[in-house]
């Protein structure tokens, strides 16, 4: 349940950026391999945003597909876990997408 702490951080960063303006919508990029569950974030968001300028804001989460690049042959392929094997046989891969934990943008009024 580290999502509660993570969500608090999201609320804290956004309200700091929004100054005192009301936030209508925020958009997050959360990688599918980031060890964060979007549903937990949604659940925590209602609790964490209460009494802040983010209260009742719409929460949009873009789930980013995991993509790996093979360090042996530079081939790029989709992964569902943080590890995998390239068609060339090597398992020395680098995850180039899917580990995002980012606040992409906010809409303020």
């Amino acid at each position: 349940m580290h999502e509660l702490g993570i969500t608090r951080n999201i609320v804290s960063i956004v309200s700091e950026q929004a100054k005192k303006k009301r936030v209508k919508k925020i958009t997050l990029d959360i990688g599918k391999l980031s060890a964060i569950l979007p549903d937990s974030i949604r659940f925590c968001f209602d609790i964490c945003s209460k009494g802040t300028t983010l209260e009742n804001a719409e929460l949009k989460i873009n789930e980013i597909q995991g993509i790996a690049k093979c360090k042996n042959c530079d081939n790029e392929f989709e992964i569902e876990q943080l590890f995998g094997r390239c068609v060339c046989g090597s398992n020395d891969i680098k995850c180039i997408a899917g580990e995002e934990m980012k606040i992409k943008e906010m809409e303020i009024i």
């Binding site: 993570i6 951080n9 999201i10 960063i13 956004v14 950026q17 929004a18 209508k24 919508k25 997050l28 934990m101 980012k102 606040i103 992409k104 943008e105 906010m106 809409e107 303020i108 009024i109």
Partner: peptide, 18 residues
């Protein structure tokens, strides 16, 4: 106008940046 559409501000902030 603003309250209808709001202003979108790009943040690109890493959640664990701090």
């Amino acid at each position: 106008h603003a309250s209808l559409h709001g202003t979108t501000v790009s943040l690109e902030a890493d959640i664990l940046e701090k």
